[in-house]
């Protein structure tokens, strides 16, 4: 049965009429037209669908939309503010931390949640945290470097506004 579900999406109030057991991934991609969040495995293993809910990285393919009622959802589309790239996005672009780019939104959202919790992670901490995000193109070395760069600069302002 469809219900009215309200939450904050990328800093704005959002209300949709939707069956609460539908997965957030598909609601984002179709009902809300935000296709930056990707499908990769559907079982919570690849991380392509990662979004940030109340500061925590979650797998949107495993998160029923009913579970985000009243929460704050951040997707890749909400990361740049006023046309300014988020430092992480900039770092990914500058470090060539991508090839096909399909895993990239999930990578950035995972990294975002890490830096929110821990603004200066070590290389080991970065690697451990990112373990659940798969990249088939092998962009791993650059991804780690991009995150390390931000960790050193301590430039991630973390939290959603």
């Amino acid at each position: 049965m469809e219900e009215r579900i309200r939450f904050r999406l990328n800093g704005q109030e959002c209300e949709i009429q939707v069956a609460p057991d539908r997965m957030l991934l598909w609601v984002l991609r179709t009902d809300l037209g935000l296709t930056g969040t990707k499908y990769g495995c559907g079982i919570g293993i690849c991380g392509a669908c990662t979004v940030v809910v109340n500061g925590e990285a979650v797998r949107s393919c495993q998160t029923p939309v009913g579970a985000i009622r009243g929460k704050e959802v951040l997707t890749i589309e909400g990361l740049s503010q006023d046309g300014q790239l988020h430092p992480l996005q900039k770092a990914f672009a500058e470090h060539d931390a991508l090839q096909c780019g399909y895993c990239t939104p999930g990578m950035i959202m995972s990294a975002y949640s890490l830096l929110r919790k821990n603004p200066h992670p070590t290389r080991e901490e970065i690697i451990a945290w990112m373990e659940g995000n798969l990249c088939r193109c092998g962009a791993h070395p650059r991804i780690v470097r991009a995150i390390e760069h931000i960790a050193r600069e301590g430039k991630s302002e973390g939290g959603t506004p």
């Binding site: 969040t37 996005q89 060539d96 991508l98 780019g101 990239t104």
Partner: peptide, 11 residues
């Protein structure tokens, strides 16, 4: 750097 990077990091 890759010319498609900005499109890819912004989704």
């Amino acid at each position: 750097p890759r010319t498609d990077a900005i499109l890819k990091v912004t989704g």
